[in-house]
Amino acid sequence: MLPTTVNGTARRGPHRSTSLLPTYLRRIIKPKQMDLEYTFWLMLQLCISPKTAYRHTSYHKQTKNQWARDDPAFVVICCVLVATAATAYCVTFSDGLWHSVLTVASAVLVDFLLVGWAIATAGWFLANRFLRKKNVHSHAIEQHVEWMYAFDVHCNSYFPLFILLYVVQFLLSPLLLWRSFVSAVLSNALYAIALAYYHYLNFLGYSALPFLEHTEVFLWPVAGILLALPFAVLSSFNATRFTLSIYFG
């Protein structure tokens, strides 16, 4: 959201983001206050038309006067979906109840939330420290990226990655786990597409903010992914076998 001016100074984004937390957390325990219909629509748009999804971010700013969502439905649904998919993997590949519980908890708390917190914090810091446009007029209100918005961007980017690396990978796992060149190519391509799309959506999320510039830096990891892909294929590295071996041995 745009910070308001108090005593001639701009109120910074992190403070305003913190003020959202009580309402945000309160709505988590009140499912009736969550807009599930809009959330599922947004998830669909992130997969088929991500620019449409971020156009609605601008509408949200106009109506709520903040960029970040005040509805935790997206995070809650993602947690449920990740836990469900991780349970399916555990039923298929795990050999113990306690190990399965730890794997599901790790998928939700570490892979989605903790890693997301770290990525959102890095993006929030990078955007506020280096990418904000300089105010050419002294009377202009200084704008900052809200941390909650940065986390929203991560969540938005994570959902298509979840579809590819949890759902599609699980369905294709009998093929992807073969010890063959074709399986390695398909597995590495799946991971490359998922990770590249994740960073592309990060780019769209930050470029939707009119007070940022040079947001193409969020596309730089895509170049690294494309450069690493041929080496992974030529070395017969199989991303699916490697990932599942970490979780299930």
Rank of each mutant, 00 (worst) to 15 (best):
K64E: 06
L212W: 08
A10N: 13
H99L: 09
T87G: 15
L175T: 13
E37R: 15
V185L: 12
W124K: 01
T18K: 11
T4Q: 11
H154W: 09
T63A: 09
L164S: 12
L172C: 09
L226T: 12
W41G: 05
T243H: 10
N7P: 06
R179A: 10
T103R: 09
I141T: 14
Q169T: 13
R129D: 15
P14A: 07
S94H: 01
Y206C: 00
F93D: 02
F40G: 09
I119K: 04
Y158W: 11
S245N: 14
V167D: 03
V110R: 13
L81Q: 07
L126R: 00
L164N: 08
L175C: 09
Y166W: 11
L201M: 11
L21C: 11
L175M: 13
L165K: 05
S236R: 10
M148Y: 02
L113T: 07
V76L: 15
F112Q: 00
M148Q: 03
S58N: 14
F237I: 04
L177R: 04
T103H: 12
V136L: 14
S17K: 01
L46Q: 01
K51Q: 13
L44A: 14
V222H: 04
S245Y: 08
L21D: 11
F159H: 00
K134N: 12
R241L: 05
F203P: 02
V217H: 00
V80A: 15
R69K: 14
A118C: 11
S138F: 12
L234E: 09
N135D: 15
V82Y: 00
V75G: 00
W220V: 15
T92H: 13
L21I: 15
Y191V: 00
E142T: 03
V136E: 14
S157C: 09
F40Y: 15
F242E: 08
A239C: 12
T92Q: 14
W98H: 14
H154N: 06
H144Y: 15
H214L: 11
Y198H: 11
F170Q: 04
T121L: 08
V145G: 01
A184T: 05
R69E: 12
V185W: 07
Y197P: 06
A184I: 04
A53W: 03
P230T: 05
V153M: 00
F211D: 05
A68E: 02
L42D: 03
C47M: 13
I225Q: 00
C78F: 03
A86I: 03
M1I: 04
L81T: 09
I141M: 08
V108E: 07
I77T: 08
V168S: 05
N188F: 02
G116I: 03
S100G: 06
E216I: 05
I193S: 03
A68W: 02
A239P: 05
L81R: 07
V233E: 05
Q169F: 01
V108G: 06
W117N: 06
F231Y: 14
H139Q: 13
H99F: 10
S106G: 14
I163G: 01
Y200R: 08
Y158E: 00
R12W: 10
T103K: 08
E142W: 01
L114H: 13
V185C: 07
L229Y: 02
P210K: 06
L81Y: 07
L175I: 13
R26D: 15
V233I: 15
E142H: 09
P14C: 07
N128E: 10
N188W: 02
W124L: 03
C155P: 03
S17I: 01
